[in-house]
Simulated scan of single mutants.
Amino acid sequence: MASRPLHHFLAPTLLAIAACSTAAQAATYTMYKDPNCGCCDNWADHVREDLEAEVAINQNADMLAVKDEHGVPSQLRSCHTMIVDGFVIEGHVPAADIERLLEERPEGVRGIAVPGMPIGSPGMEMGNRSQPYQVIAFGDSGLSVFASYE
């Protein structure tokens, strides 16, 4: 059996990695936030840096209407709402979870959320302080834990 050069094995893997990062980078990111909220801007910077994405920010004093329009369950609401490739991202969701959502596109999931404003989540950094939190998937398939952070 003839041996194959290493690049025959690496090429598909490298293409898959490139496609994953391209999907997150190529997506359109639109964030809705109250004009008076500073942590939202910090979180948008996190998304820009980690995903190398452009984030359009829409100031909106009526965030309840935005959340209602995009079907964010009341128990999952936070301070800002982002729309990415048809998915809803609610609150201080880590960029890695957004990237995973865009890669996996789980059936029945309309979005992911970090309820409230947990200390230590992206945009809510306070030195070394942090509290455990979960990223919750929501949609037609109900609610489920997408990721957990300690």
Rank of each mutant, 00 (worst) to 15 (best):
D34Y: 02
D68L: 10
D41S: 13
G38C: 05
A44W: 07
L51W: 04
L102C: 05
A53L: 06
C79I: 02
C20I: 11
R129G: 07
P5Y: 02
D85W: 01
Y29V: 09
I89K: 01
G120Q: 10
S3V: 13
A61H: 02
V93T: 07
I89E: 02
Q131S: 13
H92A: 09
Y32D: 10
I112N: 04
P132K: 14
L6P: 00
S78L: 14
Y29G: 15
A65S: 13
P132W: 11
R100D: 09
P35W: 05
S3K: 04
L76E: 05
E125L: 08
P5K: 14
G108F: 04
A61S: 10
T30H: 00
I136P: 01
A96I: 12
Q25R: 11
D85T: 06
M124H: 02
G116P: 02
G116T: 03
D97V: 04
A11C: 06
P94L: 15
F87L: 08
C79A: 11
A56W: 01
W43M: 13
E99K: 13
G86K: 01
D85L: 05
I57T: 07
S144F: 00
L102P: 03
S74E: 14
I98Y: 02
E54Y: 12
R129T: 07
T28K: 07
T28V: 12
R100M: 09
L143E: 06
S148G: 04
S130E: 15
T22W: 00
R110Y: 00
P94E: 15
S141H: 00
F138N: 06
P118T: 03
E52M: 12
I89G: 03
N60H: 09
T13L: 11
H46P: 07
L51C: 08
D68H: 05
G38M: 09
R4F: 07
T13R: 10
R4A: 15
Q75E: 14
F146Q: 12
V66L: 02
M82A: 15
P118I: 13
E54C: 08
V88M: 10
G71I: 01
G116Y: 01
A56Y: 00
L101A: 13
A61P: 00
Y149D: 05
Y32L: 12
D62K: 08
P94V: 15
A65P: 04
D45W: 08
I57R: 00
D41P: 03
V84G: 06
V145I: 08
G123E: 15
P106E: 05
M31E: 04
Q131I: 05
L76F: 03
P5V: 08
K67S: 03
A113W: 02
G91W: 06
H8N: 11
T81D: 11
E104N: 10
L143I: 00
A44Y: 00
A27Y: 02
S121C: 07
L14S: 05
V47N: 04
T28Y: 02
A44N: 03
E104K: 09
A44E: 05
A18L: 14
H46Q: 12
A16W: 11
D50M: 14
T28N: 10
A23I: 08
